[in-house]
Structures are given as C-alpha cells and as structure tokens.
C-alpha cells in the first residue's frame, strides 16, 4: 500500500455584488417610542447571519446598543425592496442601505436630544450604551429611550430614516468587455495538504490553511463560520460532488444523499484560518463579501496538492478515486 503526500495552494479574488451592478437594496429604520430601533427590510437570511450583521451595522451607525435593534425582514408587504441574497452582495448592499437609513434616523434622534438638552446637535455624541450626551460632559445626557418618547409624545417627530444602496448598472462593451463590474474584491490564499492512496485512488485532505482578506469583518465568528463551512464544501467539490458522475452523459445521476457524494463529519480535516482586513472604500464600515469565495480557494489548492503528490496533471473536478487511478495508469504507461 503506497500513500503519497502532497501540498498545493491557490490564490483567488472574489467580487462583491452582482456583476455589472444594478442590484439595489433598501432599508427603513424607525425608533419605537421606548427607544428600540426597527430595521425593516425584505432581505433573506440563508443562515449566514444576515439578520445578525444588519443589526450590528444598524447599532453601530445609530450609536445605540445592539440589543435594542430589531431586524424585521422577510415580508414583501412591509419590507422595502431587496434584490436578493446572492452574489456576495447582502453585507455590502443591505449593509450600506442600513447605514444610510440609520444615519438619517440618528440625525433626527440627535436633533430631538439637542432640543431636550438645549444644546447644539454638533455638541452631542452617543455612547453606544443607550445614552446621548454632550461631548466631554458625561452627566449632561439623555437616554435614547427618553429621546424617542419625547420625539413622539412631545415634539411630534418621527425618528426614522430611509436607505438605499444602488451601484448603477455598468453594461459591458460587447467588443472589448470594458465595464465596471464589481464594487470591491476580497482575496484568499488556501494551502491544502493531501494524502493519496495510489492503489485505491482515495484522497484524504489532511489540512486546510487559509488566509482570507475580507475587508472589515462585521462579525469575525460568522466570517470564520463561512470559511470552515466553505472549506468543507470545497473539499466536496474537489473530490466528490457531481450530479453527472459520467459527464457529459446524464446516466447514474444521484437521487439521494446515499449516491450524492459529500464528505462526512469524520472526513473533515482541521481548518486553520487567518483573516486580514483591508478596508473596502465603499463597503459598510469597510466590509467586503466572504460567503462565496470560501468554496473557491480550497478546490484548486486540493487539486494542486494531488498533482504535487502524484506527479500527474489532473485538470478536472471532482477528482474521484477513479480519476486518480486513471491518471496514475496513464503516467505509468508513459503518458502525460
């Protein structure tokens, strides 16, 4: 039994937002009379944590406690338009829309607080803990809750804001391809270590180590969650997953999880990651997108590692055991 080890890596970039733009998202923010803030959207959370990070962005932009932000999303009767959750766009588009709405609401909140405290708006700041106070004077303050109540019951004002983010459409020149397709680019470099059984063709991924440059992280644990989950999916793509195992033939298409091949929990290697933050100039607080590229970088890294281990050149995925054995046979026969 011969097992050969190899290392490979890959460098990738990934665009944020729908290609060529034209994909707006809106947000509405309003204060309740007791000082909570409702962020109303119709964006969809697929589990990546959209509701969580929008609440963080709203809290940051409003200058209020995170726990007082309610995200109300998922109903077209109440939520303003969102193009959808795809293309690594929601953090960027929805995040920017939330900031715009929050800033408008914050402006009214500070105007109300200024009137109550009898100071100028420019003299006020929020502490993020639920209070608005005069800069440098901690005890000359009013709570956000009191401000919200006063706005509604005393001053007849709505603490609310409207936000939208639209990257204007940029059509591609049909001849040259000239265009402005993306908002920002995230980057990653992934190193994979593999062990290949030369008798069975089985590939075991021993380690995945990645550096991801994703701009400002809104929530580092959620970024890590994407990276680890994406590494698993990348391993699946590289080694196992297909709905046409004998492509281009359509025969033997899987019908269930027994025949659609994916790595199991126990097949998962350790995933090490380091996250770099180079701010995006147009992202919300400098954030880029991370949800999609996490699958892209492990795939070529794993294939390069297999080629490194075996001294062959496999150029297709998935690299099934059969693909490995045929490549080794070809090599033994003196072929490429």
């Amino acid at each position: 039994m011969t097992k050969l080890r190899g290392t490979g890596f890959a460098a990738v970039n990934y665009p944020t937002g729908m290609h060529l733009g034209g994909d707006p998202t809106q947000s509405l923010v309003h204060a309740t009379t007791s000082g909570n803030f409702v962020v109303t959207m119709s964006s969809v959370d697929l589990g990546q944590g959209l509701k969580t990070i929008l609440a963080q962005i709203a809290a940051e932009a409003l200058g209020v406690p995170y726990d007082t932000v309610i995200v109300d999303t998922g109903d077209t009767d109440t939520g303003p338009h969102c193009t959808g959750t795809f293309a690594s766009r929601t953090t960027h588009r929805a995040g920017n829309a939330v900031i715009m709405a929050a800033e408008e609401a914050r402006k009214v909140m500070l105007e109300v607080a200024a009137e109550k405290l009898e100071v100028g708006v420019e003299d006020l700041e929020t502490d993020g803990l639920g209070n608005i106070h005069v800069k440098g004077v901690e005890d000359k303050a009013i709570s956000v809750a009191e401000t919200a109540g006063a706005a509604h019951f005393e001053l007849g004002r709505t603490i609310s804001g409207r936000g939208i983010y639209l990257k204007p459409p940029s059509p591609m020149d049909p001849e040259t391809g000239e265009s402005d397709p993306d908002s920002t680019q995230a980057h990653a470099c992934t190193v994979a270590e593999v062990e290949v059984d030369t008798e069975t063709g089985d590939v075991q991924v021993l380690a995945i180590k990645s550096a991801y440059e994703v701009g400002q992280q809104v929530n580092p644990e959620l970024v890590k969650g994407q990276i680890v989950g994406g590494a698993w999916m990348g391993i699946g793509h590289a080694l196992q997953e297909t709905t046409a195992p004998y492509y281009p033939a359509i025969d033997h298409a899987p019908r269930d999880f027994q025949t659609y091949q994916m790595p199991g929990a126990v097949d998962m290697p350790e995933v090490e990651c380091e996250v770099l933050e180079i701010a995006s100039r147009n992202g919300p607080f400098g954030a880029k997108g991370v949800g999609e590229m996490v699958t892209n970088s492990p795939i070529p890294a794993i294939v390069n590692a297999i080629n490194n281990a075996l001294g062959v050149r496999i150029t297709q995925i998935p690299v099934t055991p059969e693909v490995v054995l045929r490549a080794l046979d070809e090599k033994a026969a003196g072929g490429g």
């Binding site: 890596f9 980057h187 990653a188 440059e213 701010a279």
Partner: peptide
Amino acid sequence: AHRKEVEDAGMVESILAAA
C-alpha cells in the same frame, strides 16, 4: 483587462500570510 483600476487590493498580503 476590463479596464477598471484595481481597488482595495489584498492579494499579495493574502499569499504572504498563507505562505
């Protein structure tokens, strides 16, 4: 190649960190 200047670049840093 599509005639837009690179912004927010971080490829070199990512490669160096992974190395």
